[in-house]
Every structure is written in structure tokens, then in C-alpha cells.
Simulated assay, not measured.
Amino acid sequence: MRIQLSPAGPVDGYARSVFSSQGPSARELCVQALSSVEHGYDLLAPKFDYTPYRTADVVLDTTAEALAGLGPFTDGLDVCCGTGAGTQVLTTLCRGRITGVDFSANMLAQARAANPDALWVRADARALPFAERFDLAVSFGALGHFLPSERPALFEGVYRALRPGGLFAFPIEAPPPLTDSWYWQTLGFDLVMRVRNTVWRPPFVMYYRTSRLPAIRADLTSAGFSVTADALTGAGRYRDGSPHRLLVLARKP
């Protein structure tokens, strides 16, 4: 479910303007922001790939490069697949069937139209309907849509979905330096979202600062994974030289 209401981050940037002729209007974004996560992205789906919220190709490409030597992989799963951009990573690495899962019917419709050869499944990622079917699972830009209390169910479902020895891989944003503007943008965005969800229903869950590596590592380890993390140096660096993103690698024994 690669669905981000928030700015796409320092790598993705705003090269594709949200307010382009093909992207959503300011009014459409406001309607989405006041909807639930599922309904909001059902509304946004036809124009999602024309916004900067789609995971940037540089992130997809560097992730694929980092995973290339960790296989072989047969069947692949894109968790929270959105419109299916992550499929290009799986098709590069996997020799078998590609499956995408998301809870937005309209996002899945866009994914299916772009890649009819893959299997697209509508389901809640907190209750994945798979058991030992995949060798590689990936996810892009989705963790901010899960509250910390919801992550264990997500990770336990991915663990069940993987065959023994399977790998769950996903990039996360590395904490920006205090001196970087992105630090203050993410802080401000999360505060605004907390206020919005306090005074407006239904809630729209999207937070940047609840998915830091120590907490993610702890939840993955509790689910049974062996966890490492590498810098995605090809996806850009902050001015102090630290990477924009880390690649989390969770292996099922």
C-alpha cells in the first residue's frame, strides 16, 4: 500500500508536481485528507502515479540492486502494493509468480491494468491471507500507515507468508540531521496529523516518526525474523553525508 499523503521525502522531491494537469487538484487532495486511508486512496488512485507520492524509481532501482545478490527468489509478494510500482523490483528478481496485496480496490485496479500478468489480492495487510507461499516480500512507503501497535500483526503476517529462508525487504527513511529542513518538516507533519486525527473522524493514519529502525527491528525480531539494515547510498545523502534511506532486511530462518 504505497500510499503517502505526506511529502515524498528528500529523494523523491517534487519533480512531478501534485498540481500538474494530470495530478490531483488541491481540492481533491483536501477531500482525500479528510477521508479514511482506504477511501482516500480509492479517490486518489487514478492520479496517484502522477504525484510525487509514488515511490521514486531511484529508490526502487537501488533496492533491486541491493537485493540482486541475496537470492535466488522464485515467488514474490508486494505488501501494500498501491498501484504496483514495486512490481518492477519483484519482476527483476523473481523467476515465478508476482503477487500484490492492498486494501484499496481502486489502487489495485490501477495496478492490474498496468501489469495484468501479476496476481492482485485485496486484503488488509494486518491479516495477510498467505502461508509459506513466497521467497521474497517487499514493501514501499507503507509503514507510516500502521500505528506502532499494528506493526506486530503486519510483520507476523509477512512471516507466515514467507517460505523458510524467505526475505522481507523494505526501505525506510533514515533520521535526518537536526540541521536539515526535512527533520522539521516531518516533525511538523506528524504534529498536524495528530491534531487532525484528534478532532476529525475517520482518522487518516500517516506518520513519519513512528517507524524508526530500533522499533522496527524489535518488532521484526519478535515476529521471528533475523534483522539487518544497510544504507541505500544510491538513493541520496543528506548534507552531512548520512544516507537518506536504509534498507531493512528481515530473514525468516
Score class of each variant (00 low, 15 high):
D117V: 03
V89E: 01
R196F: 05
P203H: 15
R54Y: 02
V89N: 09
A250Q: 09
A215P: 01
L34P: 06
S222M: 05
R133V: 01
L213V: 01
Y14F: 11
F168W: 08
N115S: 07
H39E: 15
Y238K: 10
T74E: 13
L147T: 02
E150C: 04
G96N: 06
L162T: 05
L77W: 06
T221L: 06
L247H: 04
T83Y: 11
L249G: 05
G13Y: 02
S21A: 15
V59Y: 00
T233F: 09
L67R: 00
A137D: 04
P177D: 07
P46S: 11
E173F: 13
A231W: 02
L247T: 02
A68C: 13
R163C: 00
Y207N: 01
L249D: 06
L119Q: 14
P148W: 05
D61K: 13
R160Q: 14
D75A: 08
Q22H: 01
V205P: 00
A229L: 06
G23L: 02
G9R: 04
M107E: 06
T228Q: 12
E65M: 11
V158L: 12
R27I: 11
G9I: 05
Q32G: 13
V58H: 02
A125T: 14
A250T: 15
S242V: 04
R151Y: 06
H244D: 02
W200N: 14
G144S: 05
A223Q: 07
G71W: 08
T55Q: 10
A174S: 14
H39V: 15
C81E: 01
R217N: 08
R2K: 13
G9P: 00
R194S: 06
P164R: 10
M206K: 03
L77M: 08
G96D: 07
D230S: 14
L249H: 01
G40W: 06
S104Y: 05
G100A: 12
F134K: 00
T55V: 10
D49R: 00
G157N: 10
Y238H: 05
Y183K: 12
A231V: 03
S181K: 07
G188K: 09
G23I: 03
W184I: 06
E28Y: 14
P243Y: 02
A56E: 04
